[in-house]
Amino acid sequence: MHALLDAISTLEPPVQARRIFHGRGGRFAGCEQWTLDAYPPVLVLTSFAPATDDELATIDAALRARWQQAAAGQPLNWVFQQRGEALRIEGRSDTRLMAGEVPEPHVVMEDGALLRVQLQRGQNHGLFLDMAEGRRWVRAHVAAHRARTGQGARVLNLFAYTCAFSVAALQAGAAEVVNVDMSRGAMATGQHNHQLNGLLAGARFLAHDIFSSWGKITRSGPYDLVIVDPPSYQKGSFVATKDYARLMRRLPDLLAPGGHALLCLNAPELGVDFLRAQMHEQAPGLAFVERVANPAVFADIDEDRSLKVLVFRDTPP
């Protein structure tokens, strides 16, 4: 775990939510099981393989030593989460508070946005750090649309989760964002995130199954930007290999002429070619524009296995 300890030895107390160390990308031999994230004022260490008490003690000592150097007088708060095949099959994680405390409510910042997170309830904390560049792309795209047209973009946010994309779009000048997700709990957190940022108008929240709600979704269109960020595999909800095609077929009817679609996929077994081939087959009128780079810290020895965020544009005849 030398690379992880090296990262800890140069750690500065983080201000924004971000990943600090990404062993999962395979770039650090012997550290493939480890990730370290910052959700200020808390650090989250995650292991995707069994971790021994000795390993955790070594990491704890390294964190305490660095905190004394870089953050004297500030409390060290850190959480350990054990994941792995057995826990994943059972749909749970083992989470332990190792030092300090976790604030409640716990609000973090990313690029000026305030977002609520929950670190001690399951594997999803309320903000996916690997999507940071996707949210920055949305900010830039929506701001450019407003500058070019003089009007705010109309945005559809599918599989909205806690609506971080929506917050970014509205802060950048979007006229309206329609957020759709079947989880009422996630939608409630999303509404809270908008309130935290003073975004009291412009957002709609539909706690619906997307595949059963196309009529309502389409009637609210057309949209200048459609964001599609589904789970890669969620039994009974979404399976990328069969359900992404169903989404793509809807895009031509959802997009305004010249509109853009931001498609996301976090399935290591499915690469960029999967999305591009599916789009060519299901919605050939949408042209590939670019792949949005992941945050540098998430670099992978095989970028086709990492998060894919692709931009397509409607090309009217």
Rank of each mutant, 00 (worst) to 15 (best):
A172N: 02
A168S: 09
R249V: 10
H192V: 13
T189K: 02
I301R: 14
P222C: 12
V155W: 02
A61S: 06
V142F: 03
A172H: 02
E101D: 12
R246T: 04
N266C: 14
F288T: 03
M109K: 07
H22G: 00
A188V: 07
C31F: 01
D53C: 04
D273G: 11
K242H: 00
R19C: 05
D314S: 12
Q171A: 04
C31K: 04
L310K: 02
V79D: 02
T315Q: 15
R96N: 05
D60P: 06
A169V: 02
H106C: 08
D229Q: 07
H125P: 09
F288I: 06
W34T: 02
G215V: 10
W78Q: 02
S93Q: 03
K308A: 07
L115C: 02
L5N: 05
Y233W: 14
F80G: 01
Q118E: 12
G152F: 07
R148W: 11
L170T: 05
G73V: 11
M1L: 11
H125K: 13
R88S: 15
L119A: 08
V79C: 02
T58Y: 08
V107Q: 07
P13M: 08
L275R: 02
Y244W: 11
F165G: 04
K235G: 13
E90N: 11
E133V: 01
L43E: 01
S166N: 09
G185E: 09
G152H: 08
P75N: 06
V272D: 15
N266P: 10
K308H: 10
T189N: 09
V15K: 13
L129A: 08
D130E: 07
E269V: 15
G190F: 06
A153N: 03
F21V: 07
T95K: 00
M182F: 09
L115M: 04
Y161D: 04
L36H: 05
F274Q: 12
N124Q: 10
L275G: 04
N193A: 07
A186P: 09
P105S: 14
P40Y: 07
I20G: 02
D224C: 13
G122Q: 03
A245C: 08
I20S: 00
A261M: 10
D302Y: 12
E32R: 03
T95H: 04
A99W: 09
Q118V: 00
A160Y: 00
R96P: 05
A277W: 04
D304H: 14
A57K: 10
S47P: 04
W34C: 01
N179A: 01
G100V: 03
H2A: 10
E269G: 15
W34G: 03
D243F: 03
Q69C: 09
H2V: 05
P103R: 12
A240I: 11
P14Y: 01
P284Q: 08
T315D: 15
L254V: 01
L263T: 00
P41E: 03
G190K: 01
V15C: 14
F238N: 12
K242G: 00
A164M: 07
G285W: 06
V15A: 14
A62M: 11
Y233V: 14
A164E: 07
Y223G: 01
T241I: 15
P41I: 04
S9D: 13
V167M: 08
H22I: 03
F80R: 05
A186G: 06
R154F: 14
H2T: 13
S306F: 10
